[in-house]
Amino acid sequence: MGRSFLSVRLGVRSLAERWERVTKRLDRDNRAPAKRLTGLAKNHSSEAFFGCDNPLEAMVFSALLEIRRNQDPEDDDVDP
C-alpha cells in the first residue's frame, strides 16, 4: 500500500553496500577503520530516517554522532 520508491532506510542499505565494496579495495591498513566507519554510519540510520530526507545525510549524521560519542569528554575543554 502507499507508494513504492526508495526509502531513506533502503537508500542507506544501498549506500552501505557501496561503501563496503570500496572498503574491500582499500589497502590492508585502512580496511578495518573503513569497515568500522560503515558500521557507524548504519548505526542510527533507522532513527535518522525520521528526520532526514537523504540517505547520505542520515549516514553522515549517524557516523558523526558515533564518532562524537566515542571522543574523550576532556576534548571539550581543549581550546581550539
Binding site: 502507499g2 507508494r3 520508491f5 526509502s7 531513506v8 532506510r9 548505526n43 540510520s45 533507522s46 532513527e47 530516517f49 525520521f50 530526507d53
Partner: peptide, 16 residues
Amino acid sequence: KLTDLRAADRGGMMFQ
C-alpha cells in the same frame, strides 16, 4: 515533487 513525497511518505518508525 519527489522530495515532498519522500518527506511525507515515510511509513512506520523503527528503532533498530
